Simulated assay, not measured.
Amino acid sequence: MAIMKLVFLVLFFHHANAQTLSTNFHRYSCPNLEGIVSRTTSKFISTTPSLAPALLRLHFHDCFVRGCDGSVLLNSTAGNTAEKASFPNLSLRGFQVVEAAKAAVEKQCPWMVSCADILALVARDAVFQIKGPFWPVPLGRRDGIVSRANEALANLPPPNFNITQLITSFGAKGLSVKDLVVLSGGHTIGVSFCSSFATRIYNFTGRNDADPSMDPAYVAELRRMCPPSDATTTVAMDPGSAQDFDVDYYSMVRQRRGLFQTDAALLDHSATNSYVQQHSTPLGSKSFFDDFAASMVKMGRIGVLTGRAGQIRKICSVVN
């Protein structure tokens, strides 16, 4: 009986460990992992800083569909339309950075590190390299082998969600109201196509009107930059500091200059509104950086595959 209990305990702890991410997961299997990924990411960000918000968005879009399993990286096949071909993902960029980091890792640690882990590291490094926050990335994810376009549509919150829908969407992924307002702060970097908010400035209620919650002067600015039906022009989500990771985004939201309805919606809930007000000055930068780091670690754990689930893909765009 004692031997059986011992065997049970060994198996139990092995299973528990297999389900747990750890910053030390690749300490022995790939000790230079983080340096390899950081150097590779830096080569891209140093010449094209706009890839930083793109890579952050790529990580977000991966985690919100099937969890952080690298499924957003998979290409469509003859019998399947993958997530990256779904409408919300058509503007995703940065795949080449993940592939380059994966190739560099494979040279030193073949078949050891998942694409999901590499994407999580690349997103962190890209943000840090444009002077954003740094956070420890727990590792040990496995790659998924399923990627479906319709699941992206069903799981990614669109830019016209109201605050109730946003809270529900984030809550379904185990993220709190605070995580919602903190992660929305990622809009401090990057750009958006005019088509993503065109209805808000041209035909909000179907009567050729603009969203009344938006600053009229800002509406006029956006209309000058975005003619009706414009599908190619991009505008900064945080005008004036779109390449700087800072708290200016919250200032814009407070001034009713959030680009999306999801930005404006942060003023419609007591907790999110309070955060916006408190962090809309430079004095809020330190706590925002700390909060963003914590929320990114939390987001990076959504629905992860561990142990023997999934696989370690050799090439991130195809299953083995």
Rank of each mutant, 00 (worst) to 15 (best):
S46Y: 07
G185Y: 05
L21E: 06
R256T: 06
R148V: 08
I315T: 08
L11C: 15
V304Q: 11
D215F: 10
S295L: 04
A294S: 13
M299Q: 14
R223A: 09
G240C: 10
R141L: 05
D246I: 09
P282G: 07
A85K: 12
A104N: 09
P88Q: 04
S91Y: 12
Y249G: 09
D238A: 09
A152K: 09
A126L: 02
P88H: 06
P228L: 01
K131E: 12
L74H: 05
S114F: 09
P53V: 03
Q96I: 08
D244C: 04
T232Y: 09
S114E: 11
L175F: 00
A103Q: 07
V137P: 00
L283M: 11
C63P: 06
G174Y: 01
P157K: 05
Q278M: 10
F288V: 06
Q165T: 01
K178A: 04
A16C: 10
T168F: 01
T23G: 10
Q261M: 13
T262L: 05
G307T: 08
L92A: 01
P159Y: 10
S251A: 11
I163P: 05
A120N: 09
G307R: 10
I302S: 02
G310Y: 00
P88W: 05
L283D: 13
I45E: 08
D263T: 04
V304W: 11
S114N: 06
V219T: 15
I302F: 13
F193H: 12
G171C: 00
L267K: 03
R142A: 09
F95S: 00
A217M: 10
M1R: 07
V235G: 04
A85F: 08
W111N: 13
F128P: 02
S270Q: 14
